[in-house]
Design a protein around this nucleic acid. Structure first.
Lengths: 162, 162
DNA sequence: GTAATAACCTACTAAAATAGTCAGGTAAAT
DNA sequence: ATTTACCTGACTATTTTAGTAGGTTATTAC
């Protein structure tokens, strides 16, 4: 079973995309500064997300990424699957050869768990997340911080001109 | 989120213990040969299981480990918790400081997932596993293989005597 | 009492995965 | 033409996993 920052970052970034989808394509550097995820790492993740056609890209100035489907048609499980190989809890990736070719004593238990996790994550859409109160609150704080950073940058620019 | 061989091995070993609990203390070398888990690795795991008082030990010849509680009072979640720190899906171990001190956008989602997994595993007792058909079948195959290994060893011993 | 057995303990290590970085591309808009 | 931003691949430090090695202590059978 793998669920690490890789999968978490991917979902966070996709949610950021969903939250700003009304403002045209969103650049990775915007996501990077809002969510505190390294730009190069985001590039790796979005390469995979694009291959699974969860996002589409727009190049050039003003470009960025947008969701390739509607908010309510993208589920968390699909995002995690796209960047991690799977949310599989078995050691044998479901091949039932966990104990030197044979099924191990607990194989079916981990299969059941995998199903459980997958069902749970497959039931949560980006749309649902966008509407959650806790998500809206964090998003608002991030907007505020983002504006603060803009002001700071303007100050620095002005100082350089002087 | 961590669920790797460590947790899987621990549950498998505990299930093996439960399956042979009628035959007095079970030695780690028995579990090792039946389940194909390295002896030294089992020792590390059982040290943790003992500290969480899931098993008790009997030293000396004929010794081994036994479950310190009844079959139906030991749950999979407890075993995984004992060897992994937790089945936590958040990156911040529930501290809500995932994004440089603040809550990240998806924190609550991972909390929900953690609860989901924990509830699922906390509901499955060793007793339930012992009674499952798929478990009984694998256990039987392992008994057979174990007897085969005994015969092989006897042959080798006889050959050495010659 | 001594040999065998099996728990117990500590430290070390190879391999893999994670979480990045870096250096260069290429495509599209202004 | 130049800037913006996507895109790619190779490289790397750190951490974790999974396992080894080598010993000590307690108990039992002879």
């Amino acid at each position: 079973m793998r669920l690490t920052t890789k999968g978490r970052y991917a979902v966070t970034a996709m949610l950021d995309l969903a939250l700003h989808s009304d403002q045209g394509p969103v650049s990775l550097s915007d996501i990077s500064s809002r969510q505190g995820i390294s730009l190069s790492y985001l590039e790796q993740l979005f390469s995979k997300l694009r291959k699974k056609s969860l996002v589409s890209s727009v190049r050039g100035p003003g470009g960025g990424y947008r969701l390739s489907r509607s908010n309510n048609d993208i589920f968390v499980a699909q995002i995690v699957d796209a960047v991690n190989e799977s949310v599989d809890a078995t050691g044998c990736k479901g091949r039932s050869d966990c104990q030197s070719g044979n099924t191990c004593l607990t194989h079916h238990l981990w299969c059941d768990l995998s199903d459980q996790i997958h069902d749970f994550l497959n039931q949560i859409s980006l749309d649902q997340l966008v509407r959650r109160n806790d998500v809206r609150q964090v998003a608002e704080r991030q907007e505020f911080e983002s504006r603060q950073r803009c002001l700071e940058n303007d100050k620095i620019s002005a100082a350089i001109v002087d």
